[in-house]
Design a protein around this nucleic acid. Structure first.
Lengths: 195, 195, 195, 195
DNA sequence: GATGAATGAGATTTCATTCAT
DNA sequence: AATGAATGAAATCTCATTCAT
């Protein structure tokens, strides 16, 4: 599973994240990726069918990790506002953990035609947020006046916008600023949903 | 200003919106635009310096209208929550008015590398939202605990996400649904900011 | 019809014949064709959709001329052996007229997977030969013991082989040799079909 | 000679015939051959120096068998028309015996640039046909008016064309049709050469 | 202003061949 | 002998931009 060939695949994927982050998916040439990974041009095509498939793999494999973390939050349970906070923390901390990756996800995947957004994975993130909101409504913590799905979309949009602002350097992104953003979004949505 | 040549320019611009909406900026060929507009290939280059300049013009000229509408809201004054509602209405109603245009703005401009987001125009939208929030804080309607700029970003993100969901067909977009989205976002942010 | 653009198209086609003859279809690069024609690389793709389309056009437009000549023979009528002689003459004289073209037709088109042989045009040549044989049978000049279609195929094969031998330099191809080949094939098939 | 390794070599060669027949030499990938043979990619290169060398081996080893059969006909002697008939039979029966092989020989070898036709083996086939014709002339069965070499070429072309027609499905190829083709070509050339 | 033929740089992708194991 | 990952040269095709009319 983690044989030498699997390593090369990971090498290429990691290099692709850096290259896509630096130059953007479209401007990045496949040769840039192979060079960055220190492998031969053709090896990229040995592991992936196309440049687009590389982007897709980057997305799928990292998004999967985030989804798992979110599902973990749900499974651990606890009050809805708490779950909401923990999810926001996971999403926003991603920036500090791997800015290149966030940059790629935000710029290339978020609403790109390359990777159709409709694909299940993104829908699953919406669904998780929606479930958390719905749970709060059932608990009686959140108002039932607002549709959970609409709120979930807005929460998603708000989170993405914060990440985008960091990506584009439009907002400070030091530790404090990250903590503040987290506090703000949680307060806004928790209060916003309060009965 | 509205001579026969100006007409051709508008013809091209309107065609470009349709083509970009249909095929995406990147996949759209200049020939597609000229064909859609019913003019000669070269005429596109007579009026615009490049394909990118066409997109930029689309953005600039329509974004300007929206900014003016938002500024108008500010000038008319009134309570901050009211101003916020009117702004959300303007943004969300754009979908019904010109879906192709919204599609292009959301997909191609919002966070694309093509048109650098830093450009003043987008910043001005943030600033307007920020001013409205700040005004609410000064009025005493909104809490001062949350940074106006951060909230403004989140509001922008939430609005954009709703439009995106409509663009991608992930959310109903009939009259009622639009009204509901408007009500939801206003309630969410007004309550969320309430002292 | 013969505007300056049509000229360029012909220029490219003529250059392609020379290049294909010299290097073979497969080894020929599109750049070789454009260079030989003295036009820009992209112009080849302005007039043809692909390298294969160039070969196809070469075939179609020249084969058409030959078909016309053969049909002309048929229309002029006369005894079948005479018609047969005139057709052989047309085919074999093509070598002297445009060796490059014959080289391309023989090597690349004749039984290549590139241009499916089944295409109508080649079938029409068979059909014409078949008609001439059949006419001889009706006249009473040729035996009815042999199937006209089979004989037509053999005649075609024999002609093609002679051209191939010239192309590959396996047989002298001076005027006398051409005349001799013509005399031989006509004698062979006329006697072979004699009652 | 027939060790276990020799088996693998044959395995690859037989697979190559099927693959070349199916996809054509050019479109066939080395990986297709190894997969068809059920051996590792690299093993093809253990036994053959290149993809072309595989085609050449296919040709050489099967053509050799046919040449031997033709030489056998010559050695057994008998009247020239009889020898001619037997040779035609050998050539035409190959289709029924191994259509894939004939397909490859006809399409890829016959007049391909890959395997230069001048190579001895093909010349030897011409030479054999030529000798048979010449023998008929010496016997007094065939006219001396026609050059044996030219006639040999035509005979070769006619045979090849029949095979080609079968390969391309342009002519029925059941037992009866094969017998008819044989009869036709023999009659045509025997009569054609009659004094 | 208007036309559309002409240009050519540049990107993706393929796949025969090599080579370390 | 056998394997298959790794290499990288080479070729097609696209299309934004230019330009002569």
């Amino acid at each position: 599973m983690a044989g030498p060939s699997e390593d090369k695949r990971r090498l290429i994927l990691a290099a692709a994240v850096r290259v896509f982050a630096r130059e953007g998916y479209h401007d990045a040439r496949v040769g840039d990726i192979s060079k960055e990974a220190g492998v031969a041009y053709g090896l990229v095509y040995h592991y992936f069918t196309s440049k687009e498939a590389v982007l897709e793999a980057v997305f799928r494999e990292t998004w999967g990790l985030m989804l798992a973390a979110i599902h973990d939050v749900e499974e651990r349970g606890g009050p809805a506002p708490d779950q909401l906070r923990r999810v926001c923390k996971i999403v926003l901390r991603a920036w500090g953990d791997d800015p290149d990756l966030v940059r790629v996800l935000v710029r290339e995947v978020a609403r790109s035609p390359q990777i159709q957004r409709e694909i299940d994975e993104i829908e699953q993130a919406f669904a998780a947020l929606e479930r958390i909101v719905a749970r709060g409504q059932e608990e009686g913590t959140f108002t039932k006046d607002l549709a959970a799905r609409t709120v979930a979309l807005m929460l998603y949009g708000a989170l993405e916008e914060i990440l985008t602002a960091w990506v584009l350097g439009q907002l400070p992104d030091d530790e404090d600023a990250v903590a503040e953003a987290e506090r703000t979004i949680v307060a806004l949505f928790t209060n916003g949903l309060a009965r």
